[in-house]
Amino acid sequence: MTLLAKLGHVGARVREDVTARMPTPEERDILRLGPDEPVLRLSRVTLDGDARPVEATVMVKAGHLYELQYEFTPE
């Protein structure tokens, strides 16, 4: 069980937004990217059963090293 769940904040739903872009100079250095390699920016918000956000995360990843896969049930 995570710390948030122990404190009564149980995630019921996750929303993610993913974009691709060229990295900033700092990101390029930290991720050791070449001049033409993009990054993926993933913004994740975890919501509880009442649709209140309980956790937010922003990640920047080297685009050529990741594959995103999603599965969902259409409405």
Rank of each mutant, 00 (worst) to 15 (best):
2 T>A: 07
4 L>A: 15
4 L>R: 10
4 L>K: 07
7 L>A: 15
9 H>F: 13
9 H>P: 08
10 V>L: 02
10 V>D: 06
10 V>Q: 04
12 A>F: 11
12 A>N: 10
12 A>G: 14
12 A>V: 06
13 R>D: 14
13 R>A: 05
14 V>F: 11
14 V>C: 15
16 E>G: 03
17 D>R: 12
18 V>C: 06
18 V>A: 06
19 T>E: 08
21 R>F: 04
22 M>E: 03
22 M>F: 03
24 T>C: 01
24 T>D: 04
26 E>M: 02
26 E>V: 04
28 R>C: 15
28 R>T: 13
30 I>K: 14
30 I>H: 08
30 I>T: 12
32 R>E: 03
32 R>A: 02
34 G>V: 05
36 D>N: 12
38 P>E: 00
39 V>C: 09
40 L>V: 09
41 R>H: 06
41 R>G: 10
41 R>Q: 09
44 R>V: 10
45 V>S: 04
45 V>L: 12
46 T>G: 08
47 L>V: 13
47 L>W: 07
48 D>K: 01
48 D>L: 02
49 G>I: 10
50 D>S: 11
50 D>F: 05
54 V>L: 10
55 E>M: 00
55 E>A: 01
56 A>K: 15
56 A>Y: 08
56 A>D: 14
56 A>G: 08
58 V>I: 09
60 V>E: 14
60 V>I: 11
60 V>H: 12
61 K>P: 02
61 K>G: 03
62 A>K: 08
64 H>E: 13
64 H>G: 08
64 H>K: 11
66 Y>Q: 13
66 Y>P: 06
68 L>C: 00
70 Y>A: 03
71 E>L: 06
72 F>R: 11
75 E>W: 09
